[in-house]
Design a protein around this nucleic acid. Structure first.
Length: 482
RNA sequence: GGCCCCAUAGUCUAGUGGUUAGGACGCCGCCCUCUCAAGGCGGUAGCGGGGGUUCAAGUCCCCCUGGGGCUACCA
C-alpha cells in the first residue's frame, strides 16, 4: 500500500545557463517533499533546445546539485536521448486525429501575429492547417515542405488546474490555441516532452515554479490526448531579483556557483533558500536533515520572494561559527590559495599555523572569502596603516616611544605565551600609568595595520616574537618620520 | 492587448473572523569588552486603496491599483 502510493517527483532544469537560486530552490522543495514522503527524487535534464543547451552547463548543474547536497535517486535522464519516445507519441496523436500537421511557415505566423498586434487584437493560431484534406497533406509532404505538429484544442469548455498551493485555476479553451508539440526539426517542445516524460517516469507530483502555471492547462490537455493520468501540481512562488524583476546575470550573485565562489557554505545557502516561500515554524536555522520532517506543501506560501543577500550573509556567519575547525580549514583553503596567502599542499608547521590563523579569524567574518581577507597580515608584512587608526592611535604624543617600550618588553619576555604576554602588557600599562587600551590599540595597528581583528594577545602569540617586535619597531620608525 | 497568479515593516515570514498584528535579517541604542565580531537586552518599522458582508475583518466577497507570469518551432 505504502509502496503504491509512494510519491515520485522530479527536478527538470534545462542546461542553458548556471543553476540560479530560483531553480535551486525548486530542486530543494522537490527534494524535501520526496524525503518527507519517503518518495523518489528524480533528476531530468530537459535539453530539447539544441541551440541553447550546453554540455558544460549540464556538468555545472550536476556539480551544483552535489555541492548543495541534493542527492537524487534516479537519473539524470536526458531528454535528448529519448527523442524516439516523443516521435512515437506524436505519431500516435497524429494517427488518432488528436494532433495535426501544420505547414504554415514561421514567416506567415509572425506576420499574423504582428498584424493582430497592430490591430490591438489578440493573436491565437487561426487553425489554418487544422482541417487540411488528406490529399493536401500528402501533396505538401511530397513537395518536402517543413511542418510542425500541433495539438487540437477543443473550441469550447475549459480546463481546471487543481494546484496544491493555489487551489483551482480555470482556463477557457477559447484563450488557448492549437500549440506546437513537435517542431519542424523533429524535436518536441517543452510542453510535450515534459508531459511524455512525466507520464512515463510515473511522476506523481509536479512541483515547479509559478511561471509554469499558465502552461499547465496545455500540458493537461496533452496528457488527456495521450490517455495518461494527471499528476498533482504544485506551483511554488518565484524568486525575484532585488529590483523585483526576474533573476538574471546582471543582478550580481544569483547562481549557486557564484555564491560558492563568494565563500558561502552550502548548508547556509540551502537554509536560506528554504526560507524563501516556506516557513518551518519556530526555528529558522536548521539543517537539511531537520527540514525534512517539517516540510509540507501546505506551509509553502503563494507570494513571490525577493532574495536578500544580507540575511544569507548573516546566516552564513552563523553556520561558519558552527563548522568544526578541521572542516572550516579545508573549506577556506581555496580562498586562501586564491588570495595568494598559501600554496597547498601545506606542510606540517605551515599547516599548523594555517589552522591557527583560521581559528583566530573565523569568529569575526561571515564568508570564507572575508576570512582570507582578514588574514593577510598573518602572511604578509604590513605595508599600510588604517588611516583612521593612525589619527587615533599613532598621532598621540609619545606613541612611538610606547611602541618601543612594548617591543623591548616582548623582546625578552619568557615564556612567550598568551598569559605572559597579556600580563606583561597589563603590567607595563600600569607601570606607565596609562590604560591598557592606550597600549593595546597602537600595538594592533602596528602589527596588523588594522584597528579591528582578533584579540590582540592572540595575534601576538600567533605572529611570534620576532615578527611582532620587528613590526612594532617599524611602526615606531614610521611614526617618527611623519 | 488577452489570460492567469499574487499583495502583512526595506527584505524573508507567522497569522486562516475577536491578537497590544508574532518571529528573523537590517537599522538604532545599551550591556559585555583591548578593537571588531559574536552574545544579551531594548527600540525602529507593516496589514496598498476603496467599497461591501458581519456585533466584529489582516483574515470572507467585489472593484481599483501595484507587482509577477504565460501568450515562441525557449524551457
Amino acid at each position: 500500500m505504502a509502496l503504491l502510493s509512494s510519491v515520485r517527483v522530479r527536478f527538470a532544469p534545462s542546461p542553458t545557463g548556471e543553476l540560479h537560486i530560483g531553480g535551486a530552490r525548486t530542486a530543494l522543495f522537490n527534494y524535501l517533499f520526496a524525503r518527507a514522503k519517503k518518495g523518489t527524487f528524480i533528476l531530468r535534464i530537459d535539453d530539447t533546445d539544441l541551440e541553447r543547451s550546453r554540455a558544460e552547463y549540464t556538468e555545472a548543474l550536476l556539480d551544483a546539485m552535489r555541492w548543495l547536497g541534493l542527492e537524487w535517486d534516479e537519473g539524470p535522464y536526458y531528454q535528448s536521448r529519448r527523442l524516439e519516445r516523443y516521435e512515437d507519441e506524436a505519431a500516435r496523436l497524429l494517427k488518432e486525429g488528436k494532433a495535426y500537421r501544420c505547414f504554415c511557415t514561421p514567416e506567415e505566423l509572425t506576420a499574423g501575429r504582428e498584424q493582430a498586434h497592430k490591430d490591438g487584437k489578440n493573436y491565437l493560431y487561426p487553425g489554418t492547417c487544422r482541417d487540411l484534406t488528406p490529399e493536401k497533406i500528402e501533396e505538401y509532404c511530397e513537395s518536402g515542405r517543413d511542418f510542425v505538429v500541433r495539438l487540437r484544442i477543443p473550441d469550447e469548455g475549459s480546463t481546471v488546474v487543481r494546484d496544491l498551493i493555489r487551489g483551482e485555476v480555470r482556463f477557457n479553451h477559447r484563450d488557448l490555441d492549437d500549440f506546437i508539440i513537435m517542431k519542424s526539426n523533429g524535436l518536441p517542445t517543452y510542453n510535450f516532452a515534459s508531459v511524455v516524460d512525466d507520464a512515463e517516469m510515473k511522476i506523481t507530483d509536479v512541483i515547479r515554479a509559478e511561471e509554469h502555471l499558465s502552461n499547465t492547462p496545455r500540458q493537461q490537455l496533452c496528457l488527456e490526448a495521450l490517455g495518461y493520468e494527471q499528476p498533482r501540481y504544485a506551483h511554488v512562488p518565484m524568486i525575484l531579483a532585488p529590483d523585483r524583476s526576474k533573476l538574471s546575470k546582471r543582478h550580481g550573485a544569483t547562481s549557486v556557483e557564484e555564491f560558492r565562489s563568494r565563500g558561502y557554505l552550502p548548508e547556509a545557502l540551502i537554509n536560506y533558500m528554504a526560507l524563501l516561500g516556506w516557513s518551518p515554524g519556530e526555528k529558522e536555522i536548521l539543517p537539511l536533515s531537520e527540514m525534512i520532517p517539517l516540510f509540507s506543501l501546505e506551509r509553502v506560501n503563494k507570494t513571490a520572494a525577493i532574495y536578500d543577500t544580507t540575511k544569507l550573509t548573516w546566516m552564513n556567519g552563523q553556520y561558519l561559527r558552527a563548522v568544526p575547525p578541521e572542516r572550516l580549514a579545508a573549506e577556506a583553503l581555496p580562498f586562501y590559495t586564491a588570495a595568494g596567502l598559501v600554496e597547498p599542499p601545506l606542510g606540517g608547521e605551515e599547516e599548523e599555523y594555517y589552522e591557527k590563523v583560521v581559528k583566530a579569524v573565523s569568529d569575526r567574518v561571515k564568508t570564507l572569502a572575508e576570512m582570507a581577507d582578514a588574514s593577510t597580515y598573518f602572511y604578509r608584512e604590513v605595508d599600510s596603516y588604517d588611516e583612521k587608526g593612525v589619527r587615533k592611535h599613532f598621532r598621540k604624543e609619545g606613541s612611538a616611544a610606547l611602541l618601543r617600550r612594548a617591543a623591548s618588553l616582548l623582546h625578552t619576555l619568557e615564556p612567550f605565551d598568551l598569559d605572559s604576554v597579556e600580563s606583561g602588557y597589563r603590567n607595563l600599562s600600569k607601570e606607565l600609568g596609562i590604560s591598557a587600551g592606550r597600549l593595546i590599540h597602537p600595538t594592533r595597528l602596528a602589527i596588523s595595520g588594522r584597528t579591528m581583528g582578533p584579540g590582540l594577545f592572540d595575534i601576538i602569540v600567533l605572529l611570534g616574537r620576532e615578527k611582532t617586535v620587528s613590526r612594532l619597531e617599524k611602526a615606531a620608525l614610521w611614526i617618527e618620520r611623519q
